[in-house]
Structure formats: structure tokens, C-alpha cells
């Protein structure tokens, strides 16, 4: 059985809830009081993850940290289609890793801005916001050209991969960090496509795709 050490408002924890929901994997949640309790820095949690960071996933005694690493683990272990993290195409695997790194950069900027505004963290807000805009411009351009070539997802595949899951949460939550997506139409279209993936689940602050569209 899988146990996720989880904070509801964390985009990196949500990443794993989203992946497991899409893969149909069942799991238990242990809530960790990241804010205001700072429980991720408590003695018991530091024993689980000396880095004092969420999320942590425990699968049958195996303790894993780092949301991107856990995405790869979940995909390799539980995705029977082999599509979420394909390993038979070296170029595609490398491309996914590039976007996993990109997701970490989004965390370092868009999430930092959100933590500053929402939970009173002491980051340089303007620097975090302008850093996020720089990333989103790159991502928007990339997605715009991908669309022109008939592709819908971040990587060169005709299906979504862990790269899309990794980049989704803090992009979708960017407005909570005061980062508008108004200038990034290709990102907005991509966010909607992720919302329509079978098995998609929402989190507080991220809404599902509208039901009206689905019904039509």
C-alpha cells in the first residue's frame, strides 16, 4: 500500500495525487501541517526526509522524496501503458527530463511567489514573479510551435507524459503568486487539455474543466 505524506495546498504534493488519480493507484494520506504548523521541519518528519520537504511517498517500505523522482517511480511501476514515462526512446526520455527540470524552476519562481503572498514567506517577490514570467514566455512559445506542428503536449509524443504532470500544478496556481497568464494563450490551452485527461483530479485553487463542455 502507498502512503503519501501530503499538504493539501502544496502543488508538489498535488502532482502525485494527480498522477495516482490518472493511473488509478490507491493510496493513503498522512496529512502534514506544512502551514501554519511547520510540521515538515519537525523531528519525526526529518527522520523520514532529512531535507524537510514535502511530498514523501512510502510504497511497501520504500521511502521516496522529490516529486519528479516520485512521478517517474509511479509511472515506471504502475503505468501499464508505458506511455507516461517511456524509456524505449532515448530522445523522448531526455526531453521529459528537461521538462522535469523546468518544473523545478517553476517551483523555484512561481511557487516562491505564491508562498510569499499566501503564507508570508520571506522571498524576493518581484524576482520570483519576473523569473516565472521568463519561464512562462519560453513555455508558451514552445507550446505554440508544438500546436503548429499538431502536438498537444510538452514533449514530442502524441500523448501526455510525466512532464505535463510535473509542470501543471504551479503553472495552474500562478495567479495566487500574482503571476497572470493573460499573455500566454498557448499555456492556457495546454492547461485545459491537462484538465481533460481521463482521471484528472482538482485541488483547492485548481478547478476541473467545466462540465458543460464535456456534455456537449
Amino acid at each position: 500500500m502507498i502512503t503519501l505524506y501530503d499538504f493539501e495546498l502544496s502543488g508538489n504534493c498535488y502532482k502525485l495525487r494527480l498522477m495516482m488519480s490518472i493511473l488509478g493507484v490507491r493510496y493513503d494520506i498522512v496529512p502534514v501541517d506544512f502551514y501554519p504548523g511547520r510540521e515538515h521541519k519537525s523531528d519525526w518528519f526529518l527522520k523520514l526526509n532529512p531535507f524537510g520537504e514535502l511530498p514523501v511517498l512510502v510504497d511497501d517500505g520504500l521511502v521516496l522524496r522529490d516529486s519528479q523522482a516520485i512521478l517517474v517511480y509511479l509511472a515506471r511501476k504502475y503505468d501499464t501503458t508505458g506511455k507516461w514515462f517511456p524509456v524505449d526512446d532515448p530522445a523522448l526520455t531526455a526531453e521529459i527530463e528537461i521538462w522535469h527540470d523546468f518544473a523545478n524552476r517553476i517551483t523555484g519562481t512561481a511557487s516562491a511567489a505564491r508562498l510569499t503572498i499566501t503564507m508570508n514567506y520571506d522571498f524576493d517577490l518581484e524576482k520570483a514573479q519576473s523569473g516565472a514570467h521568463q519561464l512562462f514566455r519560453t513555455m508558451d512559445e514552445h507550446l505554440w510551435f508544438a500546436e503548429r506542428e499538431g502536438r498537444e503536449w510538452l514533449c514530442k509524443a502524441d500523448h501526455p507524459t510525466t512532464a505535463d504532470i510535473a509542470c501543471f500544478p504551479y503553472t495552474a496556481l500562478s495567479e495566487e503568486g500574482g503571476i497572470s497568464r493573460q499573455d500566454y494563450p498557448a499555456i492556457r490551452r495546454w492547461l485545459d487539455r491537462v484538465r481533460r485527461i481521463e482521471g484528472f483530479t482538482a485541488m483547492s485553487g485548481v478547478f476541473p474543466a467545466s462540465r458543460a463542455r464535456e456534455a456537449s
Binding site: E8, L9, P31, V32, D33, E176, S204
Partner: peptide, 22 residues
């Protein structure tokens, strides 16, 4: 329920309100 779990419940609700408010 623990304080952590009760906090999570309330934060989940307020987190849903937040984008509406903003």
C-alpha cells in the same frame, strides 16, 4: 481528529474560495 487534520479540512475549503475571491 487531530489539529493537523482539522486544519487541513478548513484550508481545503478556504483554498477553494481563494481564486473566486481574487
Amino acid at each position: 481528529n487531530t489539529i493537523t487534520a482539522m486544519r487541513r479540512f478548513q484550508q481545503t475549503i478556504f483554498g477553494q474560495d481563494k481564486p473566486i475571491l481574487e
